[in-house]
């Protein structure tokens, strides 16, 4: 992408006041409009801290030593792992209106925006429900709606599916896909669910002990199986099978890069079969 970045992190070092070690070391990255970026790393690697820094909450809301700078031309919305920790309103409507009222929006504009956002997350008719009575996936969609209410250009999500069952996780990723396709939203999402990230993200970042180890387009990222194994990152079975079959000579390497989904691998495997049988 040749456009100007929405957000740039320049040489950031961050050490929490109470931390034994720095949480981020020499972080450089740029985020471009419309990109969907996945962030992976072992437990306590610095994923949440990186997202808090990108959202601007570090250093302003936390105590510690900060070096470097974050330049932002955009507004960011952030969604946390457990949606309940960020609910304040007694109804979905109150929840969505809360921050807009605090920034002095007029009532009719708030009403209009709430209707737009509920429509966007597919929860029309939920305005008067208590957010605490909803299913896990619905709660997380309300949390996403709250983050979207200000119409930010960048949506940042910290492990949004780790506490959800598969249905809730699918709901969240399907909403994110819609935001990507229909709104060309710029999205940064951290997760251990690498199978979902591989299918969804344009670019992947691996962070280990506060340092960025890999930052690449998704297909190139998942070509680095040795690096991912070294740091204990789950390589999706589809991708690992592809690498195994290429190494064993069962099929050639794909000219379009590493297949990222069952469908992509099946297509590539079938093409390889036709070549072996002499039909192509």
């Amino acid at each position: 992408m040749k456009t100007e970045p929405l957000l740039r992190v320049n040489g950031v070092y961050w050490h929490y006041e109470e931390g034994a070690m720095p949480a981020l070391v020499d972080i450089h990255l740029a985020l471009y409009p419309g990109e969907v970026v996945g962030v992976v790393g072992p437990a306590a690697a610095g994923k949440t801290t990186l997202l808090l820094t990108m959202s601007g909450l570090i250093p302003s809301n936390y105590g510690g030593q900060f070096v470097g700078s974050v330049e932002s031309k955009s507004e960011q919305g952030i969604v946390f792992q457990d949606p309940e920790t960020q609910f304040i309103g007694l109804t979905v409507e109150e929840e969505l209106a809360f921050s807009l009222e605090n920034t002095g929006w007029p009532d009719e504009r708030i009403e209009r925006r709430m209707a737009e956002v509920l429509d966007l997350i597919g929860l029309n008719g939920f305005a008067n429900r208590s957010p605490l009575e909803l299913s896990g996936g619905e709660k997380q969609r309300v949390a996403i709606a709250s983050a979207l209410s200000h119409n930010p250009q960048v949506l940042i999500l910290d492990e949004p599916t780790s506490e959800l069952d598969p249905v809730g996780a699918r709901e969240v990723f399907s909403l994110l896909s819609r935001l990507k396709q229909e709104k060309e939203m710029t999205i940064v999402v951290s997760s251990h669910a690498t199978e979902e990230l591989a299918a969804f993200c344009d670019r992947m970042i691996l962070i280990v002990e506060g340092k960025i180890v890999l930052d690449q387009p998704t297909r190139e990222f998942f070509a680095q199986v040795d690096v991912l194994d070294e740091h204990g990152i789950l390589v999706p079975d589809v991708i690992r099978l592809y690498h195994m079959l290429c190494q064993e000579g069962v099929m050639p390497a794909s000219s379009t890069g590493v297949p990222l989904t069952v469908e992509e691998l099946a297509l590539h495997y079938k093409e390889g079969q036709l070549v072996r049988e002499g039909s192509l």
Binding site: V238, M244, L245, L265
Partner: peptide, 28 residues
């Protein structure tokens, strides 16, 4: 409300049978 594991779905898509392997090791 679950999906079969990725290896099973791949096995079905490329017609690997008797039985369809469920794990990466079995598929390989």
């Amino acid at each position: 409300q679950v999906e079969a594991p990725a290896m099973y779905r791949f096995g079905k898509a490329v017609d690997v049978h008797n039985p369809i392997p469920l794990t990466l090791t079995a598929m390989r």
